[in-house]
Design a protein around this nucleic acid. Sequence first.
DNA 1: GTGAAAGCGCTAACAG
DNA 2: CTGTTAGCGCTTTCAC
Lengths: 387, 387
Amino acid sequence: MQKVPTVYDVADHAGVSIATVSRVLRRPDAVRPETRARVLSSVRDLGYVPSGSARGLAGRRTGVLGLFLPGHDGLDETTPPAPTADGAGVDAAAADAATATTADAAASDPAATPLIDDRDDRAAPAPSGLYFDEVLRGAEIEAWRHGFALMVAAGRGSSREVMVNDIAGRVDGLAVLSQTVPADLVAHVARRIPVVLVADSRPGDDIDHVGVDNLGGMRALARHVIASHSVRSLVYVSGPADSPDEADRRAGLDEGLLEGAFAGDLRVVPGTFGRDRGREVATELLVGGRLPDAVMCANDQTALGVLDVFAAKGIDVPGRVLVTGFDGIEAGRFSRPRLTTVRQPMAELGRAAVRAIVDRLAAPERDPQRVTLPVEVLLRESCPPAP
Amino acid sequence: MQKVPTVYDVADHAGVSIATVSRVLRRPDAVRPETRARVLSSVRDLGYVPSGSARGLAGRRTGVLGLFLPGHDGLDETTPPAPTADGAGVDAAAADAATATTADAAASDPAATPLIDDRDDRAAPAPSGLYFDEVLRGAEIEAWRHGFALMVAAGRGSSREVMVNDIAGRVDGLAVLSQTVPADLVAHVARRIPVVLVADSRPGDDIDHVGVDNLGGMRALARHVIASHSVRSLVYVSGPADSPDEADRRAGLDEGLLEGAFAGDLRVVPGTFGRDRGREVATELLVGGRLPDAVMCANDQTALGVLDVFAAKGIDVPGRVLVTGFDGIEAGRFSRPRLTTVRQPMAELGRAAVRAIVDRLAAPERDPQRVTLPVEVLLRESCPPAP
DNA sequence: GTGAAAGCGCTAACAG
DNA sequence: CTGTTAGCGCTTTCAC
């Protein structure tokens, strides 16, 4: 790690030219086996690892794709970035190194391992991310398949601009999730490299886009709800009015109801995509005394909140009232009753995003593409299949 | 995206030298405000984004850290990497683009949204990764704090060498999880950049390392088990014999038993860290007819397998037998009964790993560090707190 | 405060 | 099959 070897060092050591070293690494069969062997051995001896930067510069391509995810709630915004400038915050590092660093001896001190009564599930961390983790995983896999490495960044409110530019300068293409990056920044970056918007249905963009079939999913679900059970009254707990997802899901609901010739009552209650709001709504419903036959929610969190209250109040789901969600988050698998929902193919989203970039790289002039991935309706106990 | 602008273009456009452009971007206050404004405006007009490669080359540092995770089970090995060579598999991309790509119209076809009866939880995807996702998230956050971007890669059995070298060439430091990279490769790479081993207690390494307190955690748990309940017979279902984690946990068990002056029977049954093996063991225990007072497992998966069988056979947990795990995976929060376990601070692991690299970058000559993070014992229903 | 010039390490023609 | 030679776009002294 002292005198990091370069092509020149390897070339010298192997008694060849730097071009040959480069060839051995890029197109091995363009070099005589013996020469190749000699070079390879020098590489080993010297501990040579080619510089990605130099490669990127010379080759005009980095072999890296970028993925911009939504920020991790809380955990970050709290602590501003260390003063970067030159040393990349190296000094700041030294400062908090002591914080979590523990010598083996200390950590093994019995007193250091707390016993926590978690019978109330209090200690559980908020899984929050899950959703994006899957996207990330899918993207990583697909990137690898296409010979790209993947660089990730989570959008932080502030300094997003810097980050985006920073990433954009290092990659051959960038996938941007939902509303993590302001439109103008996206536009700026898109002038340099292909950008694909993921699950972010901003209309009128001349930028590639991949998303899931929110509309079709909710439509299919709605049809199931009204067709399989004698639903006369239906409450829909929406998402935030400014959410494109909400818009599509709502549209799907309307279509499904129409197609299913729903003749009952539909009441729309504004929601927030939050579990708490689900609880509120359920409580109001209970207090109002007029429980509908079904409560369809714009997302799982909301539905889980509704289930929380119904369970606490002893309301029979699905016996007395049906409940549905949307997203297919893990928690819905474990709720009581288990939640009927629409599962989004998260990993597939990531893969599709990467494919979109790769395609674009191959055909820069092609018209902007829009990919919509199909979803699945998962019928579980909160609104089971027709009896 | 056509003629990607460079410093030169910006310099021309702004009527300054490239040095000034560079300054404006790196050390803004070293430039007269008016000049700065002019340059910045040119940057905007031209859609200039500095090349990370050029920057990395000239500055001898990339501002990127790498994270090497274990492969995603199955999903990958199945499909070999596209022929990379030059086009980075661009041709292969075109081939399978049609596979998942769907036009809006088609996706919205009702027939395209399948309804799946998931009352038996069959449709649920294997969450598998979860563990590493948290590490990744922690690493990303910490990297960002220190002004670094994060590059991730999942270790695939084959071509791992290529990947590692590839990543290593593009980053300033690398964190490598568990046994994802063979020792000699690690050594090779470590000659070029700082490498930190994560949760991989290979002894004798002169490489930085961060891990969790497997020993202390299991010790504390063991003491709880025997001290809080009148346990006379104990079965320990181990992990694979070659796992360093297993070794530490086993040692912790022994210490805990010793410290708690355990006078009963301890029987060790070999396990695999797999849920199936947990089921097998539980079944054997039942068939044998001599159920112990407690079954402590080397990890959560095993414990969940044990719980599966006990639940199916109507064995009362914790009434008839106590069960414990290790890891703190999400599924343990939802099992029936909920699983008492030791939670590893995954996100913290990721953060610590990044800190270790950053520290090393700041002090290349310092002795190798070893960081052991404390764990928490989560007492849940399968082995609750003392009555 | 700003410009000129010398690389950083590698790839990719182009010769031989 | 191998060597020579230009750059790739940016940072960074060193002068002015």
